[in-house]
């Protein structure tokens, strides 16, 4: 099987670089650039706004240059006593959660994708139903707090979100597109089904693993609701819950006497929170991206 892999790689690497710019390429570049712009401008406005003085922000609206410059919102965020532990908690939840979720999802998806008689189809239905029917909050709450006793444990955040049916089906569809010949030739070589999964299925599916892993990571990184339900110790709050509380508190802070010098920068804070949440994900993104960009780079030279 290694030989077939090498062959495939050799084929894709074939140096076939089309010479000129075809019209479609030009259209594509322009199209992508336009969409990028539509995404970049708001991002810039958010970034710049998060550094703009609250008074100006509320008064004149947004601008492309942070004028007058202010770091009030970031100060408010970063002076919280529990910010470091919140980052640690979020990283732990994201890493452990993503690894577990990706492993379990891949296992299930492979079994469904293989179209095994009496197994695959019932499993697919079994995995699909939870996407539509949910028992609700109270049963889940009782389950986690009273039967599993997971209060204040990160498992309480990780476990309820462990398998997302949506991603199962994305992965199933990708697994099914693996070339059968490669699997068959492995069987001929005497590989067992498990071996095929670990040695061929998974390595060949790096792009989809990267995508699904990325989606799980994003999911866990942003998760605050289960944390709200099950984590009451403020030293264990993950980042999104901490930020969620911060913004909610600021919105209601008008009802409390506050130190007169300080007025909470509501607008600015919302924008800064967006930046603080996205930051780490955007930093981590290129690592996942490597797998599918690489594939595409090969693909793009086709033609």
């Amino acid at each position: 099987m290694t030989s077939s892999l090498a062959k495939a790689a050799g084929r894709t690497a074939a140096k076939r670089r089309s010479g000129g710019w075809e019209p479609f390429t030009v259209v594509s570049v322009i199209g992508v650039a336009l969409f990028m712009l539509v995404c970049l401008i708001p991002f810039w406005v958010i970034l710049s706004g998060s550094f703009t003085d609250e008074q100006t922000l509320a008064g004149k609206g947004y601008s492309l240059i942070p004028q007058p410059f202010s770091t009030a919102a970031y100060k408010l965020i970063f002076t919280g006593p529990t910010l470091v532990s919140a980052y640690v908690a979020s990283i732990f939840i994201t890493v452990v959660g993503t690894v577990l979720a990706l492993s379990i999802t891949s296992g299930l998806s492979w079994v469904i994708a293989r179209r095994l008689p009496y197994v695959s189809r019932p499993l697919a239905i079994f995995a699909y139903i939870p996407m539509l029917f949910a028992g609700g909050l109270v049963p889940l709450y009782l389950l986690v707090t009273q039967y599993l006793k997971l209060q204040n444990s990160y498992l309480a955040v990780i476990l309820p979100l462990l398998v997302a049916p949506f991603l199962v089906f994305i992965q199933v569809s990708a697994f099914r597109q693996l070339p059968e010949e490669i699997l068959d030739s492995a069987r001929v070589d005497g590989a067992g089904e498990m071996q095929i999964f670990f040695r061929i299925g998974l390595p060949l599916s790096k792009p989809i693993l990267a995508v699904v892993g990325l989606f799980y990571a994003v999911h866990y990184w942003n998760e605050w609701f289960t944390a709200l339900l099950f984590i009451s110790d403020i030293h264990k709050y993950p980042l999104p819950l901490l930020l969620q509380n911060l913004i909610s508190n600021v919105t209601f802070s008008q009802m409390l006497p506050t130190a007169a010098e300080q007025s909470t920068p509501v607008y600015q804070l919302r924008l800064a929170l967006t930046v603080v949440t996205i930051g780490p994900i955007l930093l981590a993104y290129p690592f996942a991206q490597r797998y599918f960009v690489k594939g595409i780079t090969l693909g793009a030279t086709k033609g």
């Binding site: 299930l108 492979w110 293989r114 008689p117 197994v119 389950l143 089904e193």
Partner: peptide, 30 residues
């Protein structure tokens, strides 16, 4: 895929099935 090895392969799905049973299907009684 012979039936025996398909059951063997089915083991891969066990963790996910357990997850769905506990966290999705049990609460559906609600």
């Amino acid at each position: 895929t012979p039936v025996r090895s398909s059951l063997w392969l089915g083991l891969l799905a066990v963790p996910a099935v357990a997850f769905f049973l506990v966290f999705s299907y049990a609460p559906m009684a609600g």
